[in-house]
Each structure stands twice: as C-alpha cells, then as structure tokens.
Measured scan of single mutants.
Amino acid sequence: GQVHVGDTTYHFPNPEEARKFAEKAAKENNLQVTQHGNTFKVE
C-alpha cells in the first residue's frame, strides 16, 4: 500500500499498515483520508 501525504509518498508492504498510518496522519493533522484501491491519500 502507498500513502500520499502532501508531496511525500510512504510505501508499506501491507495495505492494512498503510491504512492505519493514513488514518493516524489524518487525525493528527485534521485532514481526510481518501482510498483508491491500496493507495491512500491524506489531504
């Protein structure tokens, strides 16, 4: 799974890890998570 936060892309071998990371980043920054397959975008 990939997580895009601003201009930075994080790669995770496990989509579940990617999702947890995205949700945590979104919560900390008052942002939203959008999911496209195994790619998550925090914005």
Rank of each mutant, 00 (worst) to 15 (best):
P15D: 05
R19E: 05
K27A: 12
P15A: 14
Q35E: 06
Q32M: 13
F21I: 02
H4W: 13
A18N: 00
K27H: 10
T34G: 03
V3A: 04
Y10E: 03
H11I: 11
F12I: 00
N38Y: 05
G6R: 06
E17A: 11
F40Y: 10
T9Q: 08
P13M: 09
R19G: 03
E23N: 07
K20L: 12
A25L: 15
Y10L: 07
N30F: 07
G37R: 03
F21H: 03
E17S: 09
P15F: 15
N30I: 04
H4D: 08
E17H: 06
N29M: 15
V42K: 02
P15G: 09
A18E: 01
K41V: 15
H11M: 10
F40A: 05
T34N: 06
E17L: 13
G37N: 06
Q35H: 05
A25S: 08
N38H: 06
A22E: 01
Q35T: 06
V5K: 03
H4Q: 14
N14W: 03
K41S: 12
H4N: 09
T8Y: 14
A18W: 00
A22R: 00
V42G: 03
A26N: 02
A25D: 02
P15E: 13
E17C: 13
V33A: 03
N29R: 13
E28T: 08
K24Q: 12
F12V: 00
Q35N: 05
H11S: 08
A18Q: 01
A25M: 15
N14P: 01
A26Q: 02
K41I: 15
F40E: 04
V5P: 00
H4E: 12
N14Y: 05
F40T: 05
T34S: 10
D7V: 07
E28C: 13
A25F: 15
E43C: 13
H4V: 15
D7M: 10
T34E: 05
G37V: 01
H36A: 09
P13Y: 07
Y10S: 03
F12N: 02
H11C: 14
P15I: 15
T39M: 12
E23G: 02
E17I: 08
L31Q: 07
A25E: 09
K20Y: 07
H4P: 01
P15Q: 13
K20R: 13
Q32D: 06
E23K: 04
L31E: 05
E17G: 05
N14A: 04
Y10D: 03
V42W: 00
T34L: 07
V3W: 00
F40P: 04
Q35M: 07
F12W: 02
N14R: 03
V42F: 02
Y10A: 03
V3S: 00
T9K: 09
H11T: 09
N14Q: 04
F40I: 06
E43H: 12
G1V: 11
V5A: 04
V3Q: 00
H11R: 07
G1M: 09
E23V: 08
Q2V: 15
F21T: 02
Q32A: 10
N30E: 06
T8M: 14
E16L: 08
V3E: 00
R19K: 11
L31H: 08
N30L: 06
Y10T: 04
T9P: 03
Q32E: 09
N38G: 05
Q2A: 11
L31W: 12
Y10P: 03
H11G: 04
N30R: 08
Q32H: 12
K24I: 11
G1Q: 04
K41H: 15
H36V: 14
T39D: 12
G6M: 07
N30Q: 08
A26W: 01
A26H: 01
